[in-house]
Design a protein around this nucleic acid. Structure first.
Lengths: 352, 352
DNA sequence: CTGAAAGCGCTTACAG
DNA sequence: CTGAAAGCGCTTACAG
């Protein structure tokens, strides 16, 4: 059992009120008293009891983060960004991951009451309206990579649409017309936006659309590639909507003896660290995930602090002034698309 | 603002004590009363206030998880396992990541007081003795992949040593003697254990040791490979102590026109999902990370519940009966080491 | 500058 | 089966 404020007070010969004041730097305290108390605090290794403080201040210094069932780098990176800026702001992060079913999501959201000062919800499966019932406008909330149209909450998302368009245009610029798309999981917002970008770009080019199902996994990319290879008229380029699938696809192409990029050009999305270290290095759309996490947390904390000060924040304050931000992507051209043929790692070219 | 227990009590025409009883299924309540209260709870969407409950029960239903600054799949997987079993047990997870400096670690550990019922600390940089000062024997604590010798806490670790030995022996079995090792970051426990496994195995074979520095990144593997290639007498096999480095290494070999596995055989560690989809597919040591997380959380929760019931648990109960568990690894043989030459994905062979 | 006391929202003996 | 009351460890007006 650790010490309580009462024990500190007794040991320092003061009231708990005074101890509280020096702990929180609130109210005036005689310098000598302050030092005496500080000394006792250190000696007793006293740390205020979180729950007690939460109860009286009605704030928890923690934010809840709900993440879907995601694998790989993305998850790590986004947490890294979220956690770093949370800590800098003096907040803790309560995570809950692997929410594929809506019911689970609801349960967790409920359980968080009184435990968090705000919420970051990443829900590529569920649109904002589906979440609405479980979200409270009185709790600062930020939607991440979520279909957020018409929701009263602020949101941040990656420019999936723009990134996908850029990739298609780049491939088209290299002379490709038969550009196939390996899709992401059904009902996934990121995947759908990338698909939309592809479609619009293809339409603008007057090129034939050409899609095959996928699921964001290497295995899925592999299977999709096999399907494409079985086609009478093969595509001249393949755009996998994430790098994992692009890598699975590349494996299938190599297995089939198809030269990349000579026979089929290849592009991915996400620009995971491994992308530049496969052969040929993978052209991809770069997304700064950690930055996404940082930005999201910064916005949420601003909303929380703003709400505390009665400032209108647009973060679940029910004022309808919900902010919506989009994080830009960047096309990174490497050898897999044929543009940088023979180029080495050093030859990375970035097109904003 | 959400409803409080008092409002529920008033609306149901009972005392708060009775409401509390039905909420917690403690004590007897007339069926009719129970139903009336349940109805009000639902109507008001009442959820008990976490902090208040924590304060009176002196338990938080949350466990803290401290993770080092790790990237990639590992992080996601371990969280997935931890979170899944925590939720199943009715616990929340407070994560804090990116602890590279000891000071940071201390600060976070302090801040967690009164916020968690137990702790999982993954600290490959710091040994248990370094953590000792910041850990309390009165708080159930489990050390993950941490140099835990002589600590009063329970611990779980991956069998890095055994996995590395298995890899070396396998390579040796294929006729290799000049087996180079690409090391992990200095002072990293996992890396050191893998190194130790390599050394012992090489010594047992009477083969010459042969190590070069690395840092667990693709880039580090790339650089290490360049060093090895510059050697007058090149190794005939390279064992990178993680897959990311193996992939960077493979890239360098290919760039230099060295055939894998014909000229140089290659092995990694971790068996990340991508391992089987690179060319050639990577022989690696498989670790079930999600399982590691599940096991760790299960042990911790048992310790927490046990402590609650006064049972001796060996999880930071100060009784010196600290349990130490090791999660086995599995060698997965693919084409990169030359054993499965010409084999396809389907040709994965697993040697326990 | 300092202290006594109320109150945050719960749970839990203790009575009845 | 049910309720009144104490208490968990804090913070914060309110007095002095």
């Amino acid at each position: 059992m650790s010490a309580t404020i009462k024990e500190v007070a007794r040991a320092a010969g003061v009231s708990v009120a005074t101890v509280s004041r020096v702990l929180n730097d609130s109210g005036p305290v005689r310098e000598e008293t302050r030092q005496r108390i500080r000394a006792v605090v250190d000696r007793l290794r006293y740390v205020p009891h979180g729950a007690a403080r939460s109860l009286t201040t009605n704030s928890t210094s923690t934010v809840g983060v709900l993440l879907p069932d995601i694998h790989g780098e993305f998850f790590s990176e986004v947490i890294r960004g979220l956690d770093a800026t949370a800590r800098r702001g003096g907040y803790h992060v309560l995570v809950s991951s692997a929410h594929s079913e809506p019911g689970e999501m609801s349960a967790v959201l409920r359980a968080l009451r009184g435990r968090v000062d705000g919420l970051i919800v990443m829900s590529p499966h569920l649109g904002a309206e589906a979440l609405q019932a479980d979200l409270s406008e009185s709790l600062p909330t930020l939607l991440l990579n979520c279909r957020a149209d018409g929701s009263p909450f602020a949101s941040i998302e990656v420019d999936n649409y723009g990134g996908a368009r850029a990739m298609v245009r780049h491939l088209a610029g290299l002379g490709h017309r038969r550009i196939a798309l390996i899709q992401g999981p059904a009902h996934n917002y990121d995947a759908e936006e990338r698909l939309r970008g592809y479609r619009d770009a293809m339409r603008a080019l007057g090129a034939p659309e050409f899609t095959v199902e996928g699921d964001f996994s290497e295995e899925g990319g592999y299977r999709a590639a096999r399907q494409l290879l079985a086609l009478a008229e093969r595509p001249s380029a393949i755009f996998a909507v994430n790098d994992s699938m692009a890598i699975g696809c590349l494996f299938a192409l190599r297995e089939a003896g198809v030269a990349v990029p000579e026979e089929i050009a290849l592009g991915g999305f996400d620009d995971i660290p491994i992308a530049r270290f496969i052969t040929p290095p993978l052209t991809s759309v770069s997304v700064s995930i950690a930055e996404l996490g940082e930005l999201a947390m910064a916005r949420l904390l601003a909303g929380i602090e703003g709400g505390r000060n009665g400032v209108i924040s647009g973060i679940g304050e029910g004022n309808g002034e919900q902010r919506r931000e989009t994080l830009p992507t960047r096309l990174v051209v490497r050898a897999s698309c044929g543009a940088a043929l023979g180029g080495t790692r050093k030859g990375d070219m970035a097109l904003s």
